[in-house]
Amino acid sequence: MADLNFHHLRYFWAVAHYRQLTKAAEALHISPSALSIQLRQLEDRLGHALFERKNRRLELTEAGRIALEHADAIFKTGQELLNTLKGVPTQSRPVLRVGAVATLSRNYQIGWLLPLLKEESLGIRLVSGQMRELLSQLANHSLDVVLANEAAPRDTAAGWISRRIAHQSMSLVSRPTDAGRRKVRVLRFPDDLQDQPLILPSQDSAVRLAFDLILEEAGVRPQILAEVDDMAMLRLLARETGALALVPPVVVTDELKSGLLIERCTLGQLQENFYAITMRRRFAHPALRSMLGFA
């Protein structure tokens, strides 16, 4: 109700907690008669009686109890707003709203979130999607941070800030052969990739563009079995096909530990970067201030 008078609601809230008109009027520094008029105006606006008198005390009606629940929530939220803007911790459990680009490694997301999940006083809301839609949600304050494997587009008007929070060398991994289980042969990059079946990130990836350039300059022509923009799918294809796959090791952490996949070559010249993208805001989320190290 856009035209609800919140002064009237505050008066009602005080009377509901004091249960006596006189005491509530003293606390509000107005006369009992003026307070009574304000209550009647609120009741008229809501269309329901909020109190009934029993043994010289005011008792809430059913409508009054419903109104008090909402009034409690409204004024609690108002106090939390003031505390947040003053930098004072609130008693309620704050929520950190995190967006993650759909192509970002799930293992990396879990590793980034684990320290936050251990904070019992903090709630986490995680959503995934395409970069464009996540940045839109970040701009309209629906998200506090976006995790991505690429920086946000350079747009000073938008106010996006991309912080590189981690990086990792890319690797070529594959299923081990029976011989490979006894002794892993390290590939010579890029020479040994001639005619090799490969599973690669899509051409939208900065890492893929750099990888293609190295092979082009060396005159090496591999067999490209698949181009995948989803790291989870790339991991599954590496497990099931036996072909070489270009991934950051964090994507296949469990497979490398179990021996289901082996690292055939580390490509130090190719780096996968991980970014935390935020907006220029005066009131940053406290959890981000500590994790990302900005005031």
Rank of each mutant, 00 (worst) to 15 (best):
L9E: 00
W13N: 07
A14V: 06
L21C: 04
T22E: 14
A24K: 06
A24F: 07
S31F: 01
P32T: 01
L35W: 02
S36T: 03
R40D: 01
D44L: 01
H48A: 08
H48P: 03
E52Y: 11
R53E: 07
K54T: 04
R57A: 14
E59F: 06
T61L: 14
G64L: 11
I66R: 04
D72G: 13
T77G: 07
Q79Y: 12
L82N: 09
L82D: 10
N83D: 09
T84H: 13
L85K: 05
K86V: 01
G87D: 15
G87T: 09
V88T: 15
V88S: 09
P89K: 12
R97F: 02
G99T: 00
A102D: 08
Y108W: 15
Q109F: 02
G111Y: 07
W112N: 01
W112H: 07
L114K: 13
L116M: 07
L117C: 00
L122W: 13
G123M: 09
I124H: 00
R125F: 02
R125A: 08
Q137H: 05
N140K: 15
N140G: 09
H141A: 14
V145C: 09
V145M: 10
V146H: 03
A148T: 04
N149Y: 06
P153Y: 02
P153I: 04
D155A: 12
T156I: 13
A157H: 11
G159W: 03
W160H: 11
R163S: 10
V173W: 00
R175A: 04
G180Q: 11
V186H: 05
L187Y: 06
R188D: 15
F189K: 00
D192L: 09
D192S: 13
D192N: 11
L198C: 12
P201T: 01
D204R: 14
D204K: 12
S205C: 08
A210C: 05
E216C: 07
E217V: 03
E217D: 11
Q223S: 05
A226Y: 09
A226W: 04
V228C: 02
D230E: 03
D230T: 04
M233E: 14
L234M: 13
R235A: 15
R235F: 01
A238C: 12
A243V: 01
P249Y: 01
T253S: 15
E263R: 09
Q271H: 10
M279L: 13
R280I: 05
R282H: 01
A284F: 05
A284I: 12
H285N: 12
M291H: 04
G293S: 05
G293Y: 07
